[in-house]
């Protein structure tokens, strides 16, 4: 295949990847509006983002095709993968601690059960 044909293939692949990434970003926005409570909205905010961002960066890399900038894109993807779970976890923990989690929407809630159990144990242990 000639250089021109490789360029076209790369452009097509890049277009497909960009489209996929944008689709996942849309899904994230729709999820943020539709989901009923804080924890589910957190899923919408972090999950499609990971794959969506990876796809967009792959699309960009296919378009740039050369240069050191491509390696910085790898770095962006790695940063996103390392930090998105941490952000999701901290927001979820803060939600539990400030009472923003609606327990009636959860099928099973073992964390609240365990928190209540430890609180009860603390109350029992305290000398009267």
């Amino acid at each position: 295949m000639t250089q021109d044909q490789w360029t076209t293939v790369a452009d097509v692949a890049s277009a497909v990847c960009l489209l996929g990434g944008a689709f996942f970003a849309l899904a994230a926005g729709v999820g943020a509006v539709r989901f009923p409570d804080l924890l589910s909205r957190m899923h919408a905010a972090t999950k499609p983002q990971v794959l969506g961002l990876v796809l967009v960066l792959v699309g960009l890399a296919l378009r740039l095709r050369e240069g050191g900038a491509v390696w910085a894109l790898v770095l962006v993807a790695v940063f996103q993968m390392l930090t998105a779970p941490v952000a999701a976890h901290m927001v979820g923990r803060a939600g539990f601690r400030t009472g923003k989690v609606r327990q009636d929407l959860l099928v099973v809630d073992e964390l609240s059960r365990d928190l209540a159990a430890t609180r009860r144990a603390d109350d029992d242990d305290r000398p009267d």
Partner: peptide, 28 residues
């Protein structure tokens, strides 16, 4: 809309990620 501070934080996180995607689109 989001009733708590944390909802708003998450929503703005989505906006930032969308901006990243937008800038990448422009660069592409």
């Amino acid at each position: 809309r989001g009733p708590s501070m944390l909802d708003r934080t998450i929503a703005l996180d989505i906006v930032v990620t969308t901006v990243i995607a937008g800038v990448a689109l422009y660069a592409a």
